[in-house]
Design a binder for these strands. Structure first.
Lengths: 224, 224
DNA sequence: ATGGCTAATTGATGTGGATCAAGGCGCCGA
DNA sequence: TCGGCGCCTTGATCCACATCAATTAGCCAT
């Protein structure tokens, strides 16, 4: 069931793009496919981890739990995205929980082996450094957003960041995840998210039809 | 005025610890001392940066500004700590502002030169990867704390993390920075911080004498 | 000393979002 | 077809913290 992935399935990821065929082959030999159904757990926080992952299809949520069981989604990882690379250098323990939001196929890369590759390949190192730096910047921006912006504003940003297709009335987007998951990601309660949606709709900025959102006034949305 | 620092002044930092004498000498040649008075700006957000820094004495605050001028301190960097390493891989732009809280002496390392060293020294690469991973984990923890914990709890954590010396009545700590700076770091208003201090004091958990805080009940403080 | 800073405290009031509670609605399985 | 069960919504109330405002206390610089 676990066969080694084709090189072509991961060579286009930014981290691997510059590598030569031989190296890619070695990486592939130390990688395996991983399949998850919706709701399946990939790893738990604190668990010793020997892999990092590339999402080929599906969605993975990375989250933390407060001691009263409240879940806070840190990030939703989608197709062609790499995650948990940092586990290789952090005492091997995952800093978050990871479960599948929908059925998903991942490639699991062997972390210890990858470290030996890093030791011999400075370019690979630099690529990984760049990737981590980008993620750090994103985290700093997230802290900024969480502490200095209102819920409505965070939702506006989120909506504007979604892929959309244009129609006569405005940009239409389909929410990729359930509303309660969006609420967790934006760090607000589902009830509050619902109220913000209706307020933005009342103000004519958006139109809501279940998970189909039309941005009627994207310019005003940006200004919130 | 800018003379190159002695090797001994930075060789003990975790990032440099494993390096041989020759490499250290090269690094030193591309490094300079930087002196700042209290309030001096080291760099601004968005500025193109060609250096990363090691604090030898003093304190540097890293912060963001909201568009209405509100300042949010992300981190206070103290002696023997390295910061802004990530700027080497992030399009060269600093993601935060940095100013001195008190007069400070720093070593400024040349980032482009350091990248050439990384290319030739996998061990150095791995050290930097480890450092960035640790910082990322800290950021994740910070998000967790900011979004899932009350102000009182964040203050308790902060106090417990400070260096203290024990006395008969409890652990005594001297706040290293002004209370309003602590408030910004914990993302609460100075007024609210003041009220939390008096509440904790009323409850007998701590005693406050200006910037001298005695932890009377550290165990209870941990439980908040 | 004196005036003018800024930090810190304290009180009164306002508010965004959480919490508690009660339906409505789509979807799926028997 | 009918429950049943998440998900979403809507309303009422609550609370932590922000905001606004006034006062006091240290701390230079003149």
């Amino acid at each position: 069931m676990k066969k080694t992935p084709e090189i072509s399935s991961f060579r286009l990821s930014p981290l691997f793009r510059e590598l030569d065929r031989d190296l890619l082959a070695q990486i592939a030999q130390h990688a395996t496919w991983r399949e998850l159904d919706a709701g399946d757990q990939l790893f738990a926080k604190g668990e010793v981890g020997k892999h990092f992952f590339l999402v080929k299809t599906g969605l993975i949520k990375l989250f933390l739990l407060s001691e009263d069981g409240q879940e806070h989604i840190m990030e939703i990882v989608g197709r062609e995205q790499l995650f948990a690379e940092a586990v290789m250098f952090m005492g091997d323990r995952y800093p978050v929980y990871a479960t599948a939001l929908e059925s998903s196929r991942l490639i699991a890369f062997d972390a210890p082996f990858f470290v030996t590759l890093l030791r011999a390949n400075p370019d690979l190192c630099l690529g990984l450094l760049a990737s981590l730096s980008r993620q750090m910047h994103a985290l700093v921006t997230e802290i900024d957003g969480l502490t200095m912006q209102s819920g409505a504003r965070r939702l506006a940003r989120y909506l504007l960041a979604q892929p959309a297709h244009k129609t006569a009335t405005g940009r239409v987007i389909a929410l990729p995840i359930a509303k309660h998951a969006i609420a967790s990601l934006l760090d607000i309660r589902p009830e509050t998210l619902s109220r913000i949606f209706t307020r933005l709709a009342d103000d004519g900025l958006i139109a809501v039809d279940a998970d189909r959102i039309t941005l009627l006034q994207p310019a005003l949305l940006k200004q919130i």
